[in-house]
Simulated scan of single mutants.
Amino acid sequence: MSFNPALLIPLQILFESYAQNEALEVISLATTDGFPVHTFTSTNHGLEEDSLSAAASTLHSVSNAVSQQILRKNFKVAFIEAQQGNVAFVDLSIDGSSYVLVMSANETLNIASLRLLITRLAAEVVKLSPTTAAASA
């Protein structure tokens, strides 16, 4: 599965616009099989893109398995609440391929605000692809 290279620059611009929110520490898009597409990290946040993508892929698989077992539905959003921040994971389909969008924020951004931001970003990422945007219209 490969991300359309023509969408990479618009994706970077989109991530940078969301990164203006100082509470956000990480914004990342990865394939569900663990390969990074693009990652933004704040300057004070050391993180390996490959490790994050692998972790996001694993959580995507586990979340989907749990959702299938309990709800008989695919998962949409998963959260991890920590003492000093939160992480949200969203399942995305772009041009027929599956991705996982990750956003983490420090404790100054509550989980409801994080959900709102990642949901908005997910919709904008999907709209970057003319094929996917046309199919969802």
Score class of each variant (00 low, 15 high):
4 N>T: 12
5 P>G: 05
6 A>G: 11
7 L>R: 00
7 L>V: 15
9 I>H: 13
12 Q>T: 01
16 E>D: 13
16 E>P: 13
17 S>E: 15
18 Y>V: 11
18 Y>C: 06
21 N>E: 03
27 I>T: 02
27 I>L: 15
28 S>V: 07
32 T>E: 11
37 V>Y: 12
38 H>I: 09
39 T>V: 15
41 T>W: 00
42 S>T: 12
43 T>A: 05
44 N>C: 00
46 G>Y: 03
46 G>N: 15
47 L>R: 10
50 D>S: 12
57 S>H: 05
58 T>N: 02
58 T>G: 12
59 L>I: 12
65 A>W: 06
69 Q>N: 10
71 L>W: 08
71 L>H: 02
77 V>F: 04
77 V>T: 09
78 A>W: 00
78 A>L: 04
79 F>P: 04
81 E>Y: 12
83 Q>D: 02
84 Q>L: 12
89 F>M: 04
90 V>G: 01
91 D>T: 05
91 D>L: 14
94 I>G: 05
99 Y>N: 07
100 V>T: 07
101 L>V: 13
101 L>Y: 02
104 S>N: 03
105 A>S: 10
105 A>E: 00
106 N>L: 00
108 T>R: 13
109 L>I: 08
109 L>Y: 09
117 L>V: 07
117 L>K: 13
121 L>N: 09
123 A>S: 14
123 A>R: 07
124 E>L: 01
127 K>V: 01
128 L>E: 07
132 T>M: 11
134 A>K: 14
134 A>G: 07
